Amino acid sequence: MSRGVAHETTVLPGFVAYLDEEPVGVATYRVTGRECELITLDSVREGAGVGTALVDAVVEAARAAGAGRLWLVTTNDNLRALRFYQRYGFDLVGVHRDAVAASRALKPSIPEIGLDGIPIRHELELELSLPSSTEPT
């Protein structure tokens, strides 16, 4: 779920990361016009560069598709993700207060309490500007 939209992640384009021939992470995304939304990012080897490699791959796919913006939504309880994305270069551009209530109406399995005992209530939107390869960075 992101911004009230349910995503069928099994049909989205994406990437799988491998270490020693073992799958250790996956990222899915969707491109709409000049925007690319990072839908999922999962890694089972924290600190091994898996997330960074997957986001790098999505960035390149987004650029190849002509996207100028890569964005994502996470919830207010996901402090590790917020740390990771901000270190990568994403900016926090929106707080959608109480948005998880609407998502929970569509997907009741979303828990009330999330990571570190934090109530899951808000969606946080982050973005990364993707200048084309011909634009100075």
Rank of each mutant, 00 (worst) to 15 (best):
R3Y: 12
R3V: 04
H7F: 15
T10I: 10
V11P: 05
F15D: 00
V16Y: 04
A17I: 03
L19N: 06
D20H: 15
E21A: 15
P23A: 13
V26M: 14
V26H: 15
A27H: 00
R34A: 14
C36D: 04
L38I: 01
L38E: 02
D42P: 00
D42E: 12
S43R: 07
V44I: 13
V44P: 00
A48L: 10
G49P: 00
G51Y: 10
T52I: 02
T52D: 04
A53I: 08
V58Y: 02
E60A: 12
A62G: 06
R63G: 11
R63E: 03
G66F: 11
G68S: 12
G68V: 09
L70A: 02
T74F: 00
T75N: 13
N76W: 10
D77I: 11
N78Y: 00
A81H: 00
Q86V: 02
Q86D: 01
R87E: 14
Y88C: 07
G94M: 10
V95S: 10
H96T: 09
H96D: 15
H96F: 15
D98G: 03
D98K: 08
D98L: 13
A99Y: 12
A99H: 13
A101D: 10
A102T: 08
S103H: 04
R104L: 04
R104Y: 11
A105D: 15
S109M: 05
I110F: 09
P111L: 07
E112G: 01
L115C: 04
L115R: 15
L115S: 15
I118R: 13
E123I: 01
E125K: 07
S129V: 15
L130N: 06
T134M: 12
T134D: 13
E135T: 13
